[in-house]
Amino acid sequence: MSDTHSELSVSVWRGAREGHYQTYTVPQRESQTVLDVVTFVQRHLDPTLSYRFACRVGVCGSCAMTVNGRPRWTCRTHVSKVAGDGRLEVGPLENLPVIKDLTTDMEAFFEKWQQAKGTFVPTRTRHDAIAQIRPDSPKRSAADAGIECINCGVCYAGCDTVRWNSDYFGPAALTRAWTLVNDERDGGNAARLQAISAWGGCHACHSHQTCQELCPQALNPTASIAGLKRRTAAAYLKGEITA
């Protein structure tokens, strides 16, 4: 039995920085995701279409695209939720250079993750005992609040401050920094607080809360960034970091 009910009119970005939306007609099905639609276009209508995906179940975060003007995971976005009028517009993530069609260059996104010192700095060796961290301690709770970020880039693509200030690290990198700032096993906080206190760091955030609104993991990067603002201000007043 066919589960095709009607047809979808799907506009898909073709090109790189310069390009255009090309419209395809795709059969609409039950429980169809936007990723299913993009895959249908590539498999049946235009094999030259470039896009990125891996897990298809909301774990890897690689299939994020702009769907009807809003950045989303396409694998977890049902067509029925976003295309009530049978129309769908799928473009690449904003605030990132487009390589081709729906594929963006994530290099700047991950470079900023590095600039925000998002790498764990161990304080023990394999010969030391495992650190005993109480899961209900305030610091661990704060770290846990941001640990589920999978770097899909949705918050970065939707952030107005990134759009205005290309040096701004963005919500994902700063959420990672906040997680490590609260990780009692980490020893890199002096350099980390210094890095995120400079131009482009946490103080560039306008607290628009778009990241919180868009995060598919329901994280709150705005709250993490607010925590970093407080922590860096205290560190500056104590003379632990310089401006």
Binding site: W199, T232, Y236, I241
Partner: peptide
């Protein structure tokens, strides 16, 4: 904005 300007603006 850096942390020094942030503190001045909030203060």
């Amino acid at each position: 904005m850096n942390v020094r300007l942030y503190i001045w603006q909030r203060a």
